[in-house]
Amino acid sequence: MPNKLEIALIQVPLFWEDPERNRELFSRKMESISNKTDIIVLPEMFTTGFTMAPENLDPREGEITVAWMQEKAKEYNAAVVGSIVIFEGGRYFNRLFFVKPDGRAFHYDKRHTFTLAGEDKVYQAGTEKLNVDFRGFKICPLICYDLRFPVWARNSSECDVLIYVANWPTPRIMAWDTLLKARAIENMVYCIGVNRIGQDKTGHDYPGHSAVCDTLGERLAFSQVEEIVVATLNKDHIVETRKKLGFLEDRDAFILK
């Protein structure tokens, strides 16, 4: 069973409500990844930016992007992870896909829609977490505002890695930095956060700060510029830290309802 995962986080500005240009952008960025990679992580709503007007998009764009993710996952023999706008059953979802190299696509609908921006009025909130087994690691992917809610991220299933994809703006970036470390420490997991950079059409600025934190909250990688951020996750680090510091064994027992 593999003992390490090589992670690539793609931190870039996004073209507003322009899926085709964004797919082309990420295709070019993926071509520049020089080292073997197991997981490629893209930001929240990586084909559109954080739009509250999904009706401006072709309803088929979600299917087109999932097919693109499957193509890239196969091409690079790596999982591709990111959230996009999905239209399904007459409703819109901010839906994250974890696509494996064999084409299997697992999805998670954002549980905590961002009320400050009215996301709760536009997108249907999800109700279930997702845990994906991939190359010897159990991974739980979540979306942006979910980061503020520790109970939802609580490690009750022996998770190894939390992944947050985001459009997290500059005025609240200290919270992003702090909470990524907190989620790593309290759950004794690697915590990965991928944010965009640049300004969107609504005037919000995004400073990046994509990061990888280990089980003790130490940063293994961090960036504030347009680039691909890489890091190695080591299963031995998880096992040894939990064995030495048995904090998870003292968790309170409760059930989410």
Rank of each mutant, 00 (worst) to 15 (best):
N131G: 03
N35S: 15
G198R: 05
D236H: 13
Y206K: 09
K201L: 12
N155V: 04
G126D: 02
T232R: 09
S223M: 11
A125G: 04
N234H: 11
Y206H: 13
T37E: 01
P171F: 02
G136C: 06
E119A: 12
N167H: 15
V189E: 02
R154T: 13
E31Y: 11
F254V: 03
S34D: 10
G82L: 06
K235P: 00
V212C: 08
K257D: 14
P43I: 08
K4S: 08
W168F: 07
P43K: 02
S223C: 13
F149R: 04
G193M: 10
H204E: 14
K181R: 15
Y92V: 06
A53W: 12
W68R: 06
R23N: 12
E226N: 05
W168R: 01
H209P: 07
T48P: 07
E71S: 13
P141S: 00
L116E: 13
K121H: 09
R104C: 09
P2G: 12
V80L: 04
D160S: 01
L180T: 13
N94L: 01
N94S: 02
V132F: 06
D133I: 00
G62Q: 06
E186F: 10
A182T: 08
P43H: 05
P150Q: 14
D214V: 07
V81N: 03
N155C: 08
T51G: 07
A78P: 00
S223I: 12
E119D: 11
L130V: 03
D177I: 06
I238V: 14
A175E: 15
G203S: 12
F137K: 03
E75S: 09
M45G: 02
D18A: 15
R28M: 09
A73N: 10
